[in-house]
Amino acid sequence: MKVRAIIKNNITNVRVLAEHPMETGLEINEETGQKNPVKYIQKLTCEYAEKVIFLAHLGPSVSENPYVSFSFKGGKKGDTLLFRWNDNTGDIEKTEAIIN
């Protein structure tokens, strides 16, 4: 996951780019002629100061390599944000990001 978190006027703007194929289960693989199995991020969360400050539930209609942005009040420069996604196959990725 690539994250950019920038604070301005006491509001932290967060942009997240997750690397994930977001397979819909409808695409046909050109080599095998079979449909690629469905695989998509179901949940993406951001925690700050031990609190969940953002939670996205995604479906397979979200684009490949999902991009999400949000903003919250009261962040502090140098503090850490914790990100985590999990997909429908049980894969998980976690990332930390510092507020700039």
Binding site: I11, K51, V52, I53, F54, L55, A56, H57, L58, G59, S61, V62, S63, P66, Y67, V68, S69, F70, S71, F72, K73, G74
Partner: peptide
């Protein structure tokens, strides 16, 4: 397509693709 939960302190403002 997606649901974004907005806890207190988070702004009701999101974007995605």
């Amino acid at each position: 397509v997606a649901i974004f939960e907005i806890p207190d302190g988070t702004l009701p403002k999101i974007s995605t693709r």
